[in-house]
Design a binder for these strands. Structure first.
Lengths: 233, 233
DNA sequence: CTTTAGAATGAACGTATGTTCATTCATTGT
DNA sequence: ACAATGAATGAACATACGTTCATTCTAAAG
């Protein structure tokens, strides 16, 4: 009932120069808000996994998250925006996992490459939630292009990591692999396995997949060479 | 106004034994019905391509097909059933295309293998409509398992075709490739390319993809061999 | 304590959804 | 010609959808 200046915008004439001080004492509140934001993101991802993008509704998200209906628009303005935030959220998770694996990889090119593949097949990356959300977003990326960058096949970091391994291998062994082509081939295999896992989460065998994958990569890398230093580690 | 026995059910006491004769003269009607069925399937696929599975509604299908609202339930009972029929329809199209390519392949294993890959990358298989519909259905396959068989990664026919090529190659060159592993690798690459095409229909270069693909396959097949008869054709 | 900012709620709203079915229309059979 | 069959229609319906906003609640500031 009281006259208010809309949503906290405007007003704040800032008579003194004190408002650069970043508001103290509001820590707990902000933490709570951030917490609810995360709860909503996780719940939305869960609903997407279980019901697909077409079955992902505000009501189901409300039920899964336990927070009230209005929260979604309070935090994310709209449902579309929420989906976008989920895309960002899941992609960040994926990036974090892979970065770790890459840092721990060492300098031997094939060892590094294997570490990358292993990371890609580990359950921190290749899991029900991530693949399902990813597939859902990919299927919508034609009609919502802004989603593409979060679920792209053409990941620059991934490409560069693999490419560097192969280039290093070339130098180290004095061979001339077409690094670009093999990098793309390796990335394709990884994508293919992701799709296969999504469609067969129970039947999928990680060890078997890694085995297959490494067999293929070893042969691609070793072809025409003397084959030393390639078989297993 | 006239008293009717609902929708043509009941009544038909069938006094004579003549109704085993399979209704003549209804050809044109049936053709029309089948035509409308196809129109609906095509229109639904188009809507799925343009708006994703979550934007695929009866109203949009009606608009795209030009037929009336009630037709969908007349022909397919429900929207879910229509989606299922689209899955079947698209999968049949895909199967037909690939079968042709396989029959025209010849007996030389690597030539056959290349024909299979080429077919997989041709625009009769790898096109906007097919990939978009496929991705949409795959993203829903967790919540609707009955869709899986129409968009599966584990296609027995595909697997067998590639496997046979590799086994033949083994015999022909007296080598011992692990046919299972390489077949899975090749299928993964194909799946990966499909996903990449879906996300980058414009940037995707078929020739480049085939080039990359064949380079990878050649090396996988040739590794540790004398390399003869592998490079290009 | 009281005041206040803003986080959280959920009933209510308008729209869009999938489905139904009485009716219309076109084709076939007599 | 007429009657009968069943394909095709689309207004009407109930439900479910995303969004809004007056209100309540809660933690921090005075």
């Amino acid at each position: 009932m009281t006259a208010s200046v809309s949503n906290g915008l405007a007003a704040t004439p800032a008579p003194d120069g004190q408002d650069l001080v970043p508001e103290e004492g509001k820590v707990k509140r902000i933490v709570n808000k951030e917490h609810h934001r995360l709860v909503l993101l996780e719940a939305t991802a869960s609903v997407m996994v279980e019901h697909g993008i077409s079955g992902t509704t505000i009501s189901k998200i409300q039920e899964a998250s336990g927070v009230s209906r209005g929260m979604i628009n309070l935090h994310f303005q709209s449902k579309d925006n929420l989906i976008l935030a989920v895309a960002k959220h899941v992609e960040e998770e994926y990036r974090r996992c892979r970065r770790q694996a890459m840092e721990a990889a060492g300098s031997e090119p094939l060892k590094t490459l294997k570490a990358i593949i292993q990371s890609e097949l580990s359950d921190t990356v290749l899991n029900l939630r991530l693949t399902a959300v990813w597939m859902a977003l990919r299927s919508e990326s034609n009609s919502r292009p802004e989603l593409l960058r979060f679920v792209d096949t053409r990941d620059r970091a991934f490409y560069c990591s693999v490419f560097r391994c192969l280039r290093k291998y070339n130098k180290l062994h004095g061979v001339d692999i077409d690094c670009r082509k093999l990098t793309l081939a390796i990335m394709s295999i990884a994508e293919g396995l992701l799709t296969d896992y999504h469609l067969h989460p129970d039947a999928f065998d990680r060890d078997d997949a890694l085995d297959m994958c490494w067999y293929a990569i070893s042969r691609m890398v070793a072809a025409g060479n003397d084959n030393s230093g390639v078989e297993e580690d």
